[in-house]
Design a protein around this nucleic acid. Sequence first.
DNA 1: CACACATATAGAATTTTGTCAATACGTTTA
DNA 2: TAAACGTATTGACAAAATTCTATATGTGTG
Lengths: 90, 90
Amino acid sequence: MNEKQTAVIFKAFCDENRIKILKLLMGGEKCACRLLEEMSFTQPTLSHHMKILCESGIVQGRKEGKWVYYSISADGISKAQEYLDFLKNE
Amino acid sequence: MNEKQTAVIFKAFCDENRIKILKLLMGGEKCACRLLEEMSFTQPTLSHHMKILCESGIVQGRKEGKWVYYSISADGISKAQEYLDFLKNE
DNA sequence: CACACATATAGAATTTTGTCAATACGTTTA
DNA sequence: TAAACGTATTGACAAAATTCTATATGTGTG
């Protein structure tokens, strides 16, 4: 994994609002509209953050009719964990 | 740990150049001047990145005479790992 | 003490990121 | 089919991050 790809993964965690979104998703899968209720910015901004979270692999989206349900991806987190393990044990 | 503090920790990993610096530090403690040789930016820019890495707790600096030796902090990485564990197991 | 060297800080320029309003797209429902 | 609803995209703007040059600070050396 190169430097750029690693940075993309961790982009998920370097913004305060995205950490808050992840906190909300810890309670389980949530639809975008429910996340929006808890955040203090507009719908396009949420959409932007969800894109970054999905690109990082830490979050996954599932479309169902009009709604998109987001949840935390254990596999995505594992990738991040592998990097930290690697960094620690050398 | 609040959202802001978490974001500060992970700032270490969300820039390509900082990932490269961490990679260099994986080989063991290195002085700033040696890191600078490997990077393709100026000395003040390195200084800036090292400040962010130290503030995140992922890197620690040790001053010796004119030189500053930087190394990876296992404790810092553990903090990041704790957060990822927390995120995963809910 | 004066100079050289390693690093840090200040301030400015540039680039990237976060945000919003407007609008497009896709799906459901009347 | 038209309207309503949830989400994504576009484009503009503001804020933050990255980078540079110039300079300051601190430390060792002649």
